[in-house]
Design a protein around this nucleic acid. Structure first.
Length: 534
RNA sequence: GCCGGGUUACCCUAGCCUGGUAGGGGGCAGGCCUGCUAAGCCUGUGGCCAGAUCGGCCUCGCGGGUUCAAAUCCCGCACCCGGCGCCA
């Protein structure tokens, strides 16, 4: 049972309202009886993007660049200054910020007149009350659902009149729509660099070397294998009295070669972005061995003096911008950036055969030392006498547990049948996502069995192990409960639970969703009988 | 921005065109049958209500509509997946 039941909780909210349900909600949370482990041996797993960002930051720092936190929100006007005629195209892929306007709560004379026109006689106390309602509304003390009622009360009029007051005098209350602003989320780190450089050019020594590894935003209709709405740019600028464009390549190599990248190709862009000086924008590609393709990961250039002039910048500036996610895709050999960045949403559950095997466990197991000894004895003796022909019976254990005499037999009553069925020694294999029970020898005519044995992962679990564990656990239970006898008789096996095995929820989900199979069957046929006396 | 495909119970899926009891498989649970097995057979397996062994209602992403009747037709919305375009 899960500790919280969403269905019931929502029903309660519907019945009793949010406020009441919320106030009682803390009682729904079960208190932990033991402390959370904080200092375990298991180290948490870092996100690959942040790990790469960390490495890039360290590279920049060791190359003598100072780190900057650049503005994330940039006025659209800056884009015009930087890009000139190209700005509309750039702005097309920017997000503009919008926000809900604050309702105009001022009760101006003209508003009062309008109210009176609706046939409401205003008094000082009514105006005061109405102002109070507006204030509470703004503070969130009054919900929009209750606004009409509150206004009606404040003005001492019917709901009808109050509705007219709101819709005719204060339409801003009923329809709060987000209002767009001219502020954008930066789509390039460059948008912010101009501002930062402007602030620093006269107070910093040249060469000024700055970097920032941070997010930028692009309005994408959809995120796809190579596009995200939010991604990271590892960006740096160099401002100096003189600059050569070749420094862009040097910086790129200095950054990336220590990360193990060797094969670069740098190409002048055919079409220069307007914020770069004409013909001074280059693209850098890196060879991705896993896909065999050249991937564009870096863009560098020297800023257009016209753009610089609009910010009063008096020195040339080189800018190198590197797509962190792109680089990560090359480094981690991932073809879909969404899987890399948002594995929680995009990575399909995948379990290796090894993981599936680890998800197998016995449903019931002996918990005491003596119980485990019983289990081992059953297995040992059953294997020793497996070919004995029934009716037969073997004492496998005779001892004292908890002051009681316990005698355990394995038996076969049926005339002419062997003690163990043929499948008792079958092993559980995991092969290509399937869980298969198969014998270690024989059944060579079955291609599935042959293939599983050859290529599958063989666990050390035999059907007999599950059966013996089950019997031992049952005998322990009988001792606890004071029962006199236990009889366990396993016949034909059809599924995991028949041999006292189960798979974790996760592994079952993986197998069923991939149309894989759990094939555990065969004749086991073993009887276990315990007599408890004293 | 344009165009197309999708969302069915724990998992996978059919049904949609042509409206009429939501079918199959897997998993899980129970039963039958089974002694040399790897696909035997049957039953059950969403929620709610019900003095409740009868039974009733709801449920096919969400919300409306049409209809005697909607998973199915129509409208709107959300999310997912493709293709084109734009980019990095």
């Amino acid at each position: 049972m899960s500790p919280l039941n969403p269905h019931e909780i929502l029903k309660k909210v519907e019945k009793e309202g949010f406020e009441k349900a919320w106030k009682e909600s803390s009682s729904l949370i079960p208190r932990a009886s033991k402390r959370l482990t904080l200092h375990s041996e298991r180290r948490g797993e870092p996100h690959p993007i942040y790990e790469l960002i960390q490495k890039l930051r360290n590279r920049f720092l060791s190359l003598g660049f100072d780190e900057v936190f650049n503005p994330v929100i940039v006025d659209e006007n800056e884009i015009y200054r930087q890009y000139g005629p190209e700005a509309p195209i750039i702005l097309d892929r920017c997000y503009y910020l919008a926000a809900l306007p604050r309702p105009d709560i001022g009760l101006s004379k003209s508003k009062c007149e309008e109210i009176e026109k609706l046939g409401v006689k205003l008094t000082d106390s009514k105006i005061l009350a109405l102002k109070g309602v507006f204030r509470d509304y703004k503070k969130g003390k009054i919900e929009s659902d209750d606004l009409i009622e509150e206004i009606a009360e404040a003005l001492d009029v019917s709901d009808d009149v109050a509705t007219r007051v709101v819709s005719q005098v204060f339409p801003e209350f009923s329809s709060l729509r987000p209002k767009p602003s001219k502020l954008t989320l930066r789509s390039h780190m460059t948008s912010s660099w101009f501002l930062t450089l402007q602030a620093l050019q006269h107070i910093a020594d040249l060469p000024l070397k700055l970097f920032s590894v941070d997010v930028r935003f692009r309005r994408e209709q959809r995120e796809d294998p190579t596009h995200l709405r939010v991604h990271h740019s590892a960006s740096c600028v160099v401002m100096d009295d003189e600059l050569n464009i070749e420094e862009g390549e040097r910086i790129t190599r200095a950054l990336l070669e220590p990360l193990g990248l060797r094969n670069f190709r740098f190409v002048k862009r055919k079409v220069t972005s307007k914020y770069y000086a004409y013909g001074m924008e280059y693209e850098g590609f890196v060879y991705n061995p896993s896909s065999g393709e050249w991937v564009e990961i870096v863009d560098y250039g020297i800023y257009n003096p016209i753009s610089l002039a609009r910010y009063g910048l008096e020195y040339p500036v080189l800018n190198v911008g590197l797509g962190v996610e792109r680089l990560a895709m090359v480094l981690y050999g991932e073809s879909d950036v969404r899987r890399l960045v948002y594995p929680q949403f995009y990575k399909e559950l995948f379990l290796t055969d090894q993981k599936i095997a680890e998800a197998l466990r016995f449903r019931e197991e002996p918990v005491t030392e003596e119980g485990r000894r019983i289990r081992d004895a059953i297995i040992r003796e059953a294997l020793k006498h497996k070919n004995s022909v029934g009716p037969c019976r073997f004492l496998v254990y005779d001892g004292e547990i908890l002051g009681k005499r316990v005698k355990i037999y394995i038996y076969e009553d049926e005339e002419g049948a062997s003690l163990l069925g043929a499948a008792a020694e079958n092993r559980i294999f995991v092969y290509d996502g399937n869980v298969i029970g198969a014998p270690l020898k024989g059944m060579d005519d079955s291609p599935l069995v042959r293939e599983t044995r050859e290529k599958g992962l063989c666990t050390d679990i035999k059907y007999l192990d599950g059966v013996a564990s089950y019997a031992a656990a049952k005998i322990e239970e009988a001792l606890r409960k004071g029962l006199k006898a236990v009889n366990v008789r396993i016949k034909m096996v059809k599924r995991l639970s028949d041999v006292n095995l189960e798979l974790s929820k996760k592994a079952r989900r993986f197998i069923t969703s991939r149309k894989k199979r759990i094939m555990v069957s065969g004749p086991v046929f073993l009887g276990i009988h315990a007599e408890i006396s004293g």
